[in-house]
């Protein structure tokens, strides 16, 4: 899947889980940039992303992400 398409799908998931009207994600977007994105909603996001893309992240992958870009890198590494 193209990086652009992944972002489009991620934005839909973020809006759904975080109850946002709209969100614009970039490689540099991190939890500090979105007020509703905290340690709890992060897990809900992970579960929703795993379901949507039909993949499973490892605990280490999840703990290492510093921003959305690294999350997308993990998704691409799983050939989504």
């Amino acid at each position: 899947m193209e990086r652009k398409e992944i972002y489009k799908q991620l934005e839909e998931i973020f809006c759904d889980v975080l109850d946002l009207d709209e969100v614009s994600l970039t490689d540099a977007t991190c939890a500090d940039d979105i007020e509703e994105w905290d340690s709890l909603s992060h897990i809900q996001l992970v579960v929703s992303i795993e379901k949507a893309f039909g993949i499973k992240f490892t605990s280490q992958e999840i703990m290492k992400w510093k921003n959305v870009g690294e999350m997308v890198d993990s998704l691409q590494a799983k050939n989504v």
Binding site: S39, L40, H42, I43, V46, V47, S59, M63
Partner: peptide
Amino acid sequence: ITDYVFMPLNVRFRD
């Protein structure tokens, strides 16, 4: 504790 205990546990128990 949230970053080093809760998050790893929550990730593990997420299902």
